[in-house]
Amino acid sequence: MLELRLVQGGLLKKVLESIKDLVNDANFDCSATGFSLQAMDSSQVAVVALLLRPEGFERYWCDRNISMGMNLNNMAKMLKCAGNDDIITLKAEDGSDTVTFMFESPTQDKIADFEMKLMDINSERLGFPEADYHAIVRMPSSEFARICKDLSSIGNTVVISVTKEGVRFSTRGDIGTANVVCRQNTAVDKPEEATIIEMNEPVSLTFGLRYMNSLTKATPLSNTVTLSLSSGLPAVVEYRIAEMGYIRFYLAPKIEE
């Protein structure tokens, strides 16, 4: 059986809001490593990988590895019924085809349980080798989201280039072009406001803005975002979930035909 009690229930709500538009159905895996998910979008352009480590839960009990197939839209509907400050507990009996979400208000004066049907999902997991990236950019997540949103009103694709100058986001469309350059900036009041650029080699990659904008739905999960880029390889866009784990998106680039 499985019982996971998450005091910061709002976090699970945010996780679902950040992936439900990208992925329809996914297996949530529960093991000693943590509560995790790996799923691809229907066009096979993006993969989301989530890890919430056991230490982040007030109670993390799963006596064997369990994989639970869930429709993410349905799961999001259920989690929307939880308050942002609620404690959320996931429960599943061995061999059951349902999962129960229990929502407790912080003052314990309201307790709700929602039972959701599980589904069988055949999903193959991808192996992501450790890579040495040409460039790694860490910046405020809200700034990155703002840039992706702004550029998508001009064009459909974004070219992300890292040079000595900084990181450049460019687009081109029928009405014109747009370029946003962010330079390294560590002279900030709070560390999460810094832009840090580690460059081993200059790199330039093109991505669909529709996908980039979809990934930025994870912005409420973290003040910062990390972009790991290598020529000709998918980008890794990572939002760290404080003291618990991460949500990572692997996004395939556009390539020359």
Partner: peptide, 14 residues
């Protein structure tokens, strides 16, 4: 011209 690549062309299934 550019075309959209897929994730499965970069990473192998385990």
């Amino acid at each position: 011209t550019q075309k959209q690549s897929t994730i499965t062309s970069f990473f192998t299934k385990r």
